[in-house]
Design a protein around this nucleic acid. Structure first.
Lengths: 246, 246
DNA sequence: GAGTGGTCTAGACCACGAG
DNA sequence: TCGTGGTCTAGACCACTCA
């Protein structure tokens, strides 16, 4: 409560936020150049850039080097459905999502070997999914399976649904799916691939599927931008056994 | 791969990271002043501050205005157990967590009313939990229940376990627990309460518990710093019905 | 090549914390 | 009061995009 409006950049960010939400600045539109904005608000360029960084962290604008600052399209919110849904995928409310998949063969090492509970240098297959909502990237998923559970032939170009179905057919019945979620800032690489600011928080979901004999048959790492996605877990309780929890 | 080492501040941050991980800088210790560090690395103060901001975003250091930059204590990782566990609480691996609770009566409004599916201005009781790991705050939880499901008398000082048990006893059997998770940067208020950087991502869990007649009996908003907490959901599958997924 | 954002400098002044 | 971090200035130079 010491300072309601401590700094210049918050005031500028607030003004721009209002202009965006009231529609005076329309989506997709380019903002005036940083030099022009700095002149208009009578601040130095670093201060104006700090103001833009706030909006960037909220996912309201997108900076494109050499080209300008743009109002982002209103975000199609994506909900990751977890818990029980073995074939967990993202759900888009209305828009059409296109997914591109690429495949790589590699060998387990370090944390990846630990995650899959295999020996280092075990052969794995990686499926890299990049999900687009229109023209903007929307989520990044890396799926790892032991090589012997991966299909021998991969369609070219691979399609997400086909790959997923093929994987499921090769797989023994699942016993447990574990999903670990945390929040962090993206690495520069992740930010570049997803075209988001390095200061926009991301949701990272690490999903590990285990079969009945305890073998890890799939590990997936999902990276979801925090401004346009969340994860939902619903747990139903049987009415009569609801009180059996110790 | 376009830029292996794009900027000065990353080099400085990397150097400080190494000094921290190799123990040349010990936990709790104060770093030299920013002016001294700037002189040592031969950079301007804003550049040095940018380097520190990177470490701050990783939760490695804590800035205390007027006092200095300090190496943070190695984080006791907290895991939020979700999904099925009705009385979801945080688990600390070893350290002892102390929780302070305060109670407020208020009336539903806006998003809160929507969350609890009650009419605006319905009476609610808020329980504000602040969880400490030693001296540093660790998580912030706001729990809202309709007033008629809240205990008439609140012990003073309220204890977390007693409050939780009392709430459970007043409550009809639960039918469903829904947990929605997302990632964002903290508000200035949240950052201040949790004593974290405004550039450290947080995990926000919104948990809504519904009873058998569809009434929302509790809504909780948990704020967990991303560097020291994650959420875990485990789903077991019955072996025989594992293939029923079309 | 013109215009854009990305990074950095060398200082100034203010606000906070502790003695 | 003094040293600390917090904010800001007015420029400089580089890297990228697009015509």
């Amino acid at each position: 409560m010491t300072h309601p409006a401590p700094s210049r950049r918050h005031a500028i960010a607030e003004d721009l936020r209002n202009q965006i939400s009231t529609g005076r600045l329309r989506v997709g539109e380019r903002l005036p150049s940083e030099a022009q904005l700095a002149a208009r608000y009578k601040v130095s360029t670093p201060t104006l850039r700090n103001a833009l960084a706030l909006l960037q962290g909220e996912g309201l604008i997108e900076k494109i080097h050499g080209s300008g600052n743009f109002i982002r399209h209103p975000l199609h919110k994506i909900t990751y459905l977890g818990g029980g849904h073995t074939r967990a995928v993202q759900l888009a409310p209305d828009g059409v999502l296109s997914v591109s998949v690429s495949t790589t063969n590699l060998r387990a090492q370090g944390p990846l070997a630990t995650l899959l509970k295999v020996a280092p240098r075990s052969p794995l297959t990686e499926f890299l999914h990049l999900c687009h909502d229109g023209t903007t990237p929307h989520s990044l998923t890396r799926v790892y399976v032991p090589r012997d559970l991966a299909p021998a032939v991969i369609p070219d170009p691979p399609s997400c649904s086909v790959v997923t179905a093929t994987l499921a057919s090769l797989r023994p019945p699942l016993a447990e799916v574990q999903e670990r979620i945390n929040a962090r800032l993206p690495t520069p690489e992740e930010a570049a691939v997803l075209r988001i600011s390095q200061s926009l928080a991301i949701l990272v979901i690490t999903r590990v599927a285990t079969d009945v004999i305890g073998r890890v048959v799939e590990a997936a790492i999902l990276v979801l931008p925090g401004d346009r996605s969340d994860a939902l877990f619903a747990t139903r309780h049987a009415p009569e056994e609801g009180n059996s929890n110790k």
